[in-house]
């Protein structure tokens, strides 16, 4: 009996991601959730600009490619057009928290009934490793070659905490995928974020703290350890909003 295989909601296209890039794990988790909920035929995904720009080739559901940062606005249009369909965006940190922050906050503030998968790896990967809004203090990138200096480059943005100041969001959770247990938890959160939408509960966002071995300049294994050592102290895992749990 097959106990683990590639989910059906992924196409046969080979991921273009670098060796050890956790985008592949997160893609698979989203696809597993789509399979388990039996919603592939009713789902419309919105791909970002960034490393995951080609996500539209990988997910087997209908897909729309967005301009940089605009995925939540496009998802809003799709959902308003087809309220019975499941609409998700898949976005990186530059896309969601820098150029697209206005769309992110406003979509969350409206409580738009969509699901957002937010991949935070603290760097711009596709363009070759520049500073992201979520880059850590002291983090060396191509555009912070002496380490991110808060005096001139500001502080990293915690998206879940920021969105948790809003009334509307239904569900905000930060997870990571740096070990088997955490991958399992990440999947649970992603599944909940999709289920919320199906049940009409409103805006759900799962932030996945992710690794970029190539641009962090580490082996894939070391990058996963770096998540524990450096990323999670800045970005603590946990649920920042779950209206189901509120009395």
């Amino acid at each position: 009996m097959v106990v683990f295989e590639k989910p059906k909601a992924l196409t046969d296209k080979v991921f273009h991601y670098c060796p050890g890039c956790t985008h592949g794990i997160i893609h698979r988790l989203v696809a597993e959730v789509i399979d388990e909920l039996g919603i592939e035929g009713q789902t419309i995904g919105v791909a970002p600009v960034g490393c995951a720009v080609l996500a539209y080739d990988y997910f087997a559901c209908d897909m729309i490619e967005a301009a940089h940062g605009r995925a939540p606005a496009i998802a809003t249009g799709v959902k308003r057009s087809m309220p019975d369909k499941v609409v998700f965006t898949y976005q990186g940190d530059g896309d969601l928290a820098s150029i697209g922050m206005c769309e992110t906050v406003s979509t969350a503030a409206r409580g738009e009934n969509v699901t957002i998968i937010f991949v935070n790896n603290a760097i711009y990967g596709m363009t070759g490793g520049q500073m992201a809004p979520t880059s850590l203090i002291g983090q060396v990138t191509q555009t912070s070659p002496y380490g991110r200096d808060p005096k001139t480059q500001g502080y990293p943005i915690r998206v879940c905490e920021l969105l948790a100041t809003l009334d509307a969001p239904q569900y905000l959770e930060r997870v990571t995928v740096n070990n088997v247990k955490n991958v399992r938890n990440a999947k649970k959160a992603i599944k909940k974020a999709f289920q919320n939408q199906i049940e009409g509960k409103g805006f759900s966002l799962v932030e996945v703290v992710s690794a970029c071995p190539t641009n962090w300049g580490m082996t894939p294994q070391k990058a996963l350890e770096w998540i524990d050592e450096k990323m999670l102290p800045q970005y603590p895992l946990g649920c920042y909003r779950d209206k189901d749990q509120e009395v």
């Binding site: 919105v46 729309i64 967005a66 249009g77």
Partner: peptide, 17 residues
């Protein structure tokens, strides 16, 4: 919409359907 940019992208979303 929150901005003109968002508005045109919402249009893009509906147009995609």
């Amino acid at each position: 919409a929150e901005s003109e940019i968002a508005a045109i992208n919402m249009v893009y979303g509906v147009a995609s359907t």
